[in-house]
Every structure is written in structure tokens, then in C-alpha cells.
């Protein structure tokens, strides 16, 4: 017993630096956030009172918040499909080539290195200047839309920029998985008379399923927290038409009328959503592993 106490003491000593910063900047905010969510605190005044679940009840009738939730859900659903399909197509196409694999990989991954804020502003130039030029001078009139001002088109614009930025990341994971598919397995399938589509859906796809799971949940997780790309492109506008949950919280807490308690109640709801998704992910991956 004395030995294990000494071991624990040593453990604490070695973990102390990590534990201290972790407690101060992550755990305490996470726990105190739930506490703040039950107050009517405005972030400035010293006195505030506990209102228990009033904030949560108010959130339920907050149309702007639920609109931002709906927008985020739409964004996440489209991104999960679009980004993953493009990434997988690119990965398969690049892996099927004998030469220039490295060049393509470099090009498609590059946007992921650049911040979405910078990438977003570069695309802003395309949406507000280049596309009009192409519509006027090259006769491509289908490009002649208010890409930033019209909520319908700005949603498409946001998806384009977000895909441009994240597809490379997903593609790298898919490529790593594709390289793990044994070549003799594919050869055997080909000898057995399978065409390339059958080979892909019957052999390759089942083999890379773990990577598909990782990528889908990564897109889900980062999608629910989307902020940068929308901030750069539309700022959540026009009005609040393209506001995501993270933006809605940011605005509530740091712009205009500061309602900290209320904003933390929203944060808590976001936390619960993301946590449920992650727990489902862990469960799915565990059962997959058990199958293999």
C-alpha cells in the first residue's frame, strides 16, 4: 500500500504541469459553464441570481437559435456526403495512377494547410469578382448569382469553400486506407471475373470501412462546430440566414447584448449534441472492431 501511494505521488508530480493547465483552461470552464447556464449573469455586473432552468426554457423558444441549429444540421448533412464522396473519388483516382501521385496529393491537401479564414477571403474574391466576369465575358450566365448575398446561393458557396478546404484531409486518410488493401485480393477478384465496379464495392469498400467511419465522424464533429468559413464568407448573413450554432453563441456572448448565462445554456446544448454523436461513434467503432 505504501508503495502504491508513493507511486501515485510520483505520478501526480510528473503529471502536475499538464494537469494544472488542463484543469484551469478546460475542465473548470467546462464545469463552470453548466453553472453559469443557470444564472441570469450578463458578464459584467457583480451580482446575479440563479434562475435554474429558465435559460434552457428560453432557448427552446429562441427561433434564431433553432434556425442556426437547422442551418448547421443542413450544413453537416451535406458536408458528410459531399466532402466524403469527393475525397474518396479523388483518393481512388489518384491511387489508380502510376505516376504523379505525389503531385496530386500535394495539390489537394494544400488548402487544408491554409486557414479557412484566408481561404474564405480568396474565395470571396472569386464569388464577388471572378464569377461575374466569367458570366459577363464568357457567356457563363449560370454563374450570374448573388453568391454571397442570396442565402440559397451562399449556402452553396459555403459548402464549396468548406469542401475545398477539408477534402484533402479526408483524402489523405482514404489514401492511407486504400494502400492497406492487399493487392492479391483485388487480383483474385479480377481473375474471378469481377469488373472494376464490383471490385470496388465488394472488395475495396468493405476493407476501408474503418477509414470511412473515421472520416464521417470527423466531418460530423467538425461540422457541428463550423465557424471560420462562414465568418469569412457571409458573417452569418444576410441577416442571420447562414448563421451556425457556434456563430450564434459567439454573437450572443461577444457582440451586442451580452447575455452570458443565456449563451452558456446554448453552449451546453451544443456540447450535449456533440457528445452524443461522439459516443455513438465510439460504440459503432467498437462493434466494428468486434466484427473483424
Amino acid at each position: 500500500m505504501g508503495g502504491s501511494r508513493r507511486a501515485n505521488l510520483r505520478l501526480l508530480l510528473f503529471c502536475a504541469p499538464a494537469l494544472i493547465v488542463y484543469f484551469v483552461f478546460k475542465l473548470i470552464p467546462a464545469v463552470s459553464g453548466i453553472g453559469y447556464a443557470m444564472t441570469d449573469w450578463n458578464g459584467l455586473s457583480q451580482d446575479y441570481s440563479f434562475v435554474l432552468f429558465d435559460n434552457f426554457i428560453a432557448v427552446f423558444s429562441d427561433t434564431y437559435f433553432w434556425r442556426s441549429v437547422w442551418f448547421t444540421l443542413k450544413y453537416v448533412a451535406v458536408m458528410v456526403v459531399v466532402a466524403n464522396v469527393i475525397a474518396l473519388l479523388l483518393a481512388v483516382a489518384i491511387e489508380s495512377r502510376r505516376r504523379a501521385k505525389g503531385v496530386y496529393r500535394t495539390i489537394f491537401y494544400m488548402p487544408n494547410m491554409i486557414s479557412m479564414v484566408i481561404g474564405g477571403y480568396m474565395w470571396m474574391f472569386i464569388f464577388t469578382q471572378v464569377l461575374y466576369y466569367m458570366a459577363d465575358n464568357w457567356g457563363l450566365t449560370f454563374l450570374d448569382h448573388s453568391w454571397i448575398g442570396d442565402p440559397h446561393y451562399s449556402f452553396i458557396a459555403i459548402i464549396i469553400v468548406a469542401s475545398w478546404s477539408t477534402v484533402g484531409y479526408l483524402m489523405i486518410i482514404y489514401m492511407a486506407a486504400l494502400q492497406g488493401v492487399p493487392a492479391d485480393l483485388l487480383e483474385a477478384a479480377q481473375l474471378a471475373g469481377a469488373n472494376s465496379r464490383q471490385c470496388f464495392f465488394r472488395v475495396t469498400l468493405p476493407m476501408i470501412l474503418p477509414a470511412v467511419t473515421i472520416c464521417i465522424f470527423w466531418t460530423l464533429n467538425s461540422g457541428f462546430q463550423v465557424f471560420d468559413v462562414i465568418y469569412a464568407l457571409t458573417g452569418g448573413g444576410p441577416g442571420r440566414a447562414t448563421q451556425s450554432v457556434a456563430m450564434n453563441i459567439y454573437e450572443e456572448a461577444f457582440r451586442g447584448n451580452i447575455r452570458y448565462g443565456y449563451a452558456t445554456a446554448k453552449s451546453t446544448i451544443l456540447f450535449v449534441i456533440v457528445m452524443v454523436i461522439t459516443l455513438i461513434q465510439l460504440k459503432v467503432m467498437k462493434s466494428r472492431e468486434a466484427e473483424l
Partner: peptide, 27 residues
């Protein structure tokens, strides 16, 4: 204790930044 601390670190990987940014700003 080591299992507990490790579990604490792993668990907190689930916490999204946007859900703690306001209390973090307070800190």
C-alpha cells in the same frame, strides 16, 4: 489513480471548444 487521470484526459477530448469558450474567456 493513473487510470482515472488518463480517463479524465480522454473524456475531455469530447468537449467542443465552442461550448467552453465563454467560461474560458472568464478564466
Amino acid at each position: 489513480l493513473s487510470k482515472f487521470i488518463f480517463g479524465l484526459f480522454v473524456f475531455s477530448m469530447l468537449i467542443p471548444f465552442s461550448s467552453i469558450m465563454i467560461p474560458l474567456y472568464r478564466v
